[in-house]
Write a protein that binds this DNA or RNA. Structure first.
Lengths: 336, 336
DNA sequence: TTGAAAGCGCTAACAG
DNA sequence: CTGTTAGCGCTTTCAA
């Protein structure tokens, strides 16, 4: 069996309370007693049992993170941010992948709760108020992250999507494009962030003379969807003299780039393409994808920072934290 | 405060033992008592405190996973496998990213131990016997995963690298290539898996008449390294009539593909390129990368399965488990 | 400055 | 079939 506080106490010839005091630095202990305890700890290789400690302090030093799928690079990036700053404050991360299933999300929330996690971060891809309500009922700090849908009044951290789409459109305009196609996703859900992005896109167009906008709805946000829409989009491009395609997510853009490659359409020579997100592949693929950087790492980092602040009773900023974006100018878009 | 077993007992008018029995199904309980308990649990929304439970059962249902960086897609894929099968057996995963630092690895191992994890999976990119020894000292089930270096006699799961390189070379040969360049990494470390891969490559060449082998050492395994070696490799290709480049990792291949793109070298028209790993990007990039599939998901899955088997005292197979590979024939290699 | 003792929430003998 | 009780390893009053 492993060595406990009792063993240390015995060896150091003090009571277990004294041992506890030195390992927690919670109360004054005489120099010599402390030294004896320290020596005993060293000698026995004693490591406090965090489980026992958690039981009495009611602090598990665990933060639960429910994600859709660590295989998505943006999710991996968020988790990186979460883990790295969690670590700085001595919090460990318990990962649960829901693969988008709302029931699974809920089950995990309960599971995490029974593990006494001190806070929960939910990275979701569909709005699922049922789960959110469940978690809010726990009365522990909670941050909701969703790249596609509005978090409404829930604590979250994101970018200003209106501004992002606005800026990207402006950039395209600055390149000389006059006919820009925006590719959105035709989800009928009212809370889709596409609403804001389309507004930003339109606003940018309105600000400029002699340009025209076109909106196309793909049937999803993934690489597959981007590929599958290729034929129709290519047709649209021809019919309307479109010179730039602004995809609402990098994945869509990459899929479309693949379609172009497979069909002999040269990017950016024949058509400029840009994305949204700056997922890892955007800067690896050739041509490198021009896109707007949504700082996923920072989003994760700020999310957990907020949770920790609440746990430490520090002042927290407003519920919705906006992070700055950046236009990543690369080779998939050219001047016309 | 949250509801405890006592509250349930009181409401159901039974002792806490009875409640414990019904939630654990550990001993017979009369139908009516069970029902009363169930009702009480339902009414109070009782969830057993896993921390308390862990303290007495000494089972945390936690498995610690130390990784280098979840941002590497092959790592993410392994973690997926680990998490998904862990979940099937009701184990949660505690993630720790070392970013390759051996001291961090060791610190995390200790941390995980104090959290009473029941097993540890270490995904490493350098051989670090110090950490391995530390973990082995814990006497809990342990699996060591390393994509680049030999695990020697440590419990691990991998592919047969000799065979994989052999098969890929055979495939290239079958395409008609007679001058194949193998790109390895010049680590001087004796335990590099490159040793086996180069052997497999050479063996395949030896089996065939009139073909020639060339080996080039890059300065790393990453995309950057693949890019940076581009110029030298391009020169080698010219000088030796090389028609195919076999890179020891996908990342290297992708980097080289990028170099080719940026320098007007057409793949596979001018040169065939293949990789090793089948990381996510291999099938997304254009041209899609011909490569050997190292089943990362399965590796993770089998690794944790082994740990769980040990935990359940089930029979476990030998220490080193080999998983089958597959040649992924795609467009980056052509017939000559 | 120190030790004794209570108790965190739960499981597992043990006795009935 | 059920209740009582003794811990699991630790923190934290409370007295001394």
């Amino acid at each position: 069996m492993s060595v406990t506080i009792k063993d240390v106490a015995k060896l150091a010839n003090v009571s277990i309370s004294t041992v506890s005091r030195v390992i927690n630095n919670s109360k004054p202990v005489s120099r010599e007693a402390r030294q004896r305890v320290l020596d005993a700890i060293e000698e026995l290789g004693y490591k406090p049992n965090q489980v026992a400690r958690s039981l009495v302090t009611r602090r598990s030093n665990l933060i639960g993170v429910i994600i859709t799928d660590i295989g998505n690079s943006y999710v991996a990036e968020m988790v990186r941010g979460v883990e790295e700053v969690g670590r700085m404050y001595k919090y460990d991360i318990v990962l649960s992948s829901s693969y988008g299933n709302p029931n699974t999300e809920k089950k995990f929330a309960q599971l995490l709760m029974s593990k006494q996690v001190e806070g929960i971060i939910l990275v979701s891809e569909k709005p699922n108020w049922d789960v959110i309500e469940e978690i809010e009922g726990y009365k522990i700090p909670f941050v909701y992250l969703n790249r596609y849908y509005d978090s409404l009044d829930k604590p979250t951290v994101s970018i200003d999507n209106y501004e992002a789409a606005f800026e990207m459109t402006k950039y395209l305009l600055s390149l000389g494009h006059k006919n820009i196609l925006y590719v959105t996703n035709n989800e009928d859900n009212e809370t889709s962030l596409e609403k804001f992005k389309i507004d930003g896109y339109i606003k940018a167009l309105e600000d400029t003379e002699g340009v025209k906008g076109h909106v196309y709805s793909s049937s999803g946000f993934g690489i597959e969807d981007g590929y599958n829409m290729g034929e129709e989009v290519a047709k649209l491009i021809k019919e309307n003299d479109i010179t730039a395609v602004f995809c609402c997510q990098d994945e869509l853009a990459i899929g479309f780039l693949n379609y172009c490659y497979d069909n002999g359409i040269k990017v950016p020579h024949d058509i400029s393409v840009c994305g949204y997100g700056d997922t890892k592949i955007a800067s690896i693929y050739r041509p490198r994808l021009t896109t707007v950087k949504e700082p996923y790492y920072d989003i994760g980092a700020v999310a957990i920072r907020r949770i920790i602040k609440i746990l430490k009773n520090e002042e927290v900023e407003k519920e919705h934290i906006y992070l700055p974006i950046r236009i990543m100018e690369r080779e998939s878009c050219r001047k016309v």
